[in-house]
Simulated scan of single mutants.
Amino acid sequence: MAKPIEIKPQPRNAREELQRRLDNAPVEHADAMLSLYELLQQLYDSRTLDLLRGALGAGDEVLNHVVRLTTQPESVRSIRNLLIMAKLLSSIDPETLHRISAMLPQAVEQSENGDPPSLWALLGRFRSKDSRRALAAGATLLESVGRELNWKK
């Protein structure tokens, strides 16, 4: 009859294993450690570490102050307005907004150069389809704002 082979596993020394991993860590993660040291130096130079240390030391006081500020009616309205503005901006096609923002510096530069156009020249510009389209959009916007202002009464 065959005899069973007796296997005795070596006892695992977790401390030794941890020490070995710790000894190899600087070699395996040298780039990350150098980057971390650079970040730490930048935080120290900009005094951000001092600010964080102070905020951690103050802990509950800072949190209480922030909560007190954010529960004021003005803060609540501001937060709601920011959310509404974000929703409004998200409804605008990014390409359209990009084209408009790219044209603004050119329009400002043209208006700064030379003498301002005469009233007749401005009226001539308003006759173009593009100007009328922009004026119509502006008039519609003003009409909507007026309607909303009247609604509050």
Rank of each mutant, 00 (worst) to 15 (best):
H29D: 14
L97K: 14
D45M: 02
S78P: 00
L141M: 15
E38G: 00
H98G: 12
N113F: 05
R12M: 08
L82W: 00
P26S: 10
L104N: 08
V27H: 03
N150C: 02
L36N: 02
G114A: 13
K153A: 04
T140Q: 09
F126P: 01
R47L: 06
T70E: 08
W151R: 15
E109W: 05
P11Y: 01
I84L: 14
L83K: 10
Q41P: 02
G124F: 10
F126W: 05
L18H: 08
P73L: 01
D60I: 04
L97S: 04
R77P: 00
R21C: 00
F126M: 15
I7E: 01
L89T: 02
T48C: 07
I5Y: 02
T96S: 06
E112S: 07
K87H: 13
L22F: 09
L142V: 13
S46M: 15
I5T: 11
R132C: 14
A32D: 15
L82E: 09
M85G: 02
E17I: 01
S131L: 09
V66K: 05
L97C: 06
S144M: 10
A137I: 07
A134N: 10
N24E: 13
E28G: 02
K153C: 05
Q72T: 02
A102P: 03
L51K: 05
D50R: 00
S91E: 01
S91M: 13
R47V: 10
S78D: 08
W120N: 04
G59P: 01
D115V: 11
E61Q: 14
R99F: 03
S35E: 07
R12P: 00
K3H: 11
A86L: 07
Q72R: 11
L119A: 11
Q106A: 11
A121M: 07
V108K: 14
L51S: 09
W151P: 03
R47P: 00
L141F: 04
G138K: 10
V76I: 12
L43G: 08
L63E: 14
D130N: 15
Q19E: 14
A121Q: 14
P73S: 13
R147L: 10
L40R: 13
